[in-house]
Design a protein around this nucleic acid. Structure first.
Lengths: 328, 328
DNA sequence: CTGTTAGCGCATTCAT
DNA sequence: ATGAATGCGCTAACAG
């Protein structure tokens, strides 16, 4: 086993109380004895026992963050930023990945709670009253992002509704009169937390209401390529395809290329997220950009503020911007 | 605070010893009392205090894994697989990212050690005797992957040397007579652990020795595009560019397209890793594939085996295979 | 079968 | 300025 404070005490001929005073430089100790103890501790490579220390102190200086996916570059980047900010403020981070499984997510949240993290940043698949009250019961500070839950949990993200709305306005301004909106299926409403796609959909409806000249169709099935294909066949005039994620846009672009349909000559294409991969794609994809690093950092900062009992805003939106690209 | 075993004891009119027997179903307890205690514990939503439990048991059922990057899809996938296997075997996982910083890596390893993880999977930037002896001193089981360190630490990865060697043979077999090999700079040798690129380079040399008809140049500078451009200008005959990572190949492909140099008509291009992004790239990139999920799973399995005191092989190589693609 | 006791390593209050 | 004692929550060995 490792060297303990008790051993140091014996070696120095004092008691553990005195050793503790030296190690945590608290008052009530002669400089000479402190120096001696510190020296011995240094030589022995003493490190306080984290578990014992946390047990008595009641906190772990550790944050948990639950994501459902890290393959998506947006999330890995967000995690990076979150972690960097947390570390800057002296916190260690536990990352867990739910893989979009409600059961797994619950299991992981419990694991984090068991490990007595001081706070949790949560992108949840779960939702609903019982879920929220379970979170509340833990008495652990929680900040949400992405999917919102309706409890008194602070929220840090971008304004999705406004962002899609802006994208539609951009398309309309470019002269497009027909729009296909491609999104994650919303049919799991009630089964799974789909706050983000709902917000984006709401933004679409709002903007299309403002632009009556712009006809629109919505594609939300898993076979969206086939649906788009059908819509494209029966369409007259130039259409724009707006995707709620760059990932969809890339798949569609691949299909368009295979069909020898030219972008943007024959079809306009726009994504969302501005992920790094876009650097390797021709033509440059129009998309919606936002500073995901800022989201990550602010998320950590907000969570730590809550842990320390400071007041934080209920919601905090990061700015977004349209990236014109060459695909429109 | 949360409900403790002491409270359950009082509520049931027994002592903590008895409660412990019921909770951990140990022998020496009447079925009736056990049932009662279990019922009360259930009702109160009792969860054992992880820190206290670990403190006395001496283990945490937790693994640590240190990576330098998770943006790279290879690593995020590896992490996924590692985590899944660990969870299957009852272990929780702490992930830390060193960002290729030796200091950060050391700090994180110490954080993991402080938190008393039962074992660590390590992709290290650090190397050398003092580093290894520090790891050894911790007495915590460690398994390495990717960058190897020379101590008695088991290694799970693919055979990089053989893989590049096979790739070169493939190129030679296709009739190429000129090769440019693009790799991470090796000049940091001695400063940083660069085991993987060194192995791949060794494979290149070996295979080129076997194929004397194949002339080759090596590009390792950060401005590899400029260098390749120069080499391309002064070349006669068709050249193949072999990259030690798909990432480089994608950058080069982007540049080739911009220069209107046709692939594979004018230049052959080959990557390494077979990352998912390749699905979105034309022409389909030739590359070297290996099952990274298998590496992750075997890594976890090997680490857990070591923790449990079982014997594990010193090194364990995952199979690789050439993916022909359309870029050659 | 169940109660008692001790101890994991550390922090902290009260004596001295 | 230092020592002694108590407790965090749990496990385990020993009594009875």
């Amino acid at each position: 086993m490792n060297v303990t404070s008790k051993q140091i005490a014996e070696l120095c001929g004092v008691t553990r109380g005195t050793v503790d005073r030296a190690l945590n430089n608290r008052p009530g100790i002669r400089p000479a004895t402190r120096a001696k103890i510190l020296k011995v501790a240094e030589e022995l490579g003493y490190r306080p026992h984290f578990l014992a220390q946390s047990l008595v102190k009641g906190h772990t200086k550790t944050l948990g963050i639950v994501l459902f996916d890290i393959q998506n570059q947006i999330f890995s980047q967000l995690f990076h930023a979150f972690e960097a900010e947390a570390r800057k403020q002296g916190y260690f981070v536990y990352l867990v990945l739910s893989n979009r499984s409600k059961e797994l997510e619950l299991e992981y949240i419990n694991s984090l709670l068991d490990r007595k993290v001081d706070g949790i940043a949560l992108l949840s698949i779960n939702e609903g009253k019982k879920f929220e009250s379970a979170l509340l019961k833990s008495r652990t500070p929680i900040v949400t992002f992405g999917n919102r839950i309706s409890g008194p949990f602070p929220y840090v993200w971008l304004n999705d509704k406004q962002a899609i709305s802006d994208a539609v306005d951009h398309l309309a301004g470019l002269g497009y009169r027909q729009l296909i909106y491609v999104s994650l299926p919303l049919r799991r409403r009630g089964e799974e937390n789909i706050y983000v796609p709902e917000q984006r959909y709401a933004g679409l409806l709002e903007a299309c209401g403002r632009n009556p000249d712009l006809g629109f169709k919505v594609v939300m099935s898993r076979e969206y390529i086939a649906e788009i294909s059908a819509l494209y066949e029966q369409s007259r005039g130039k259409i724009a395809i707006l995707c709620s994620s760059d990932i969809y846009a890339l798949e569609i672009l691949k299909w368009l290329k295979a069909q020898k349909i030219r972008v943007p000559d024959q079809v306009g294409l726009m994504g969302f997220d501005n992920i790094d991969i876009l650097n390797y794609v021709n033509p440059a994809l129009a998309t919606v950009d936002y500073n995901v690093n800022e989201i990550g950092a602010r998320l950590a900062d907000t969570l730590i503020a809550r842990i320390q009992g400071r007041d934080v805003p209920d919601e905090s939106f990061i700015r977004h911007a349209i990236v014109p690209g060459e695909s429109l």
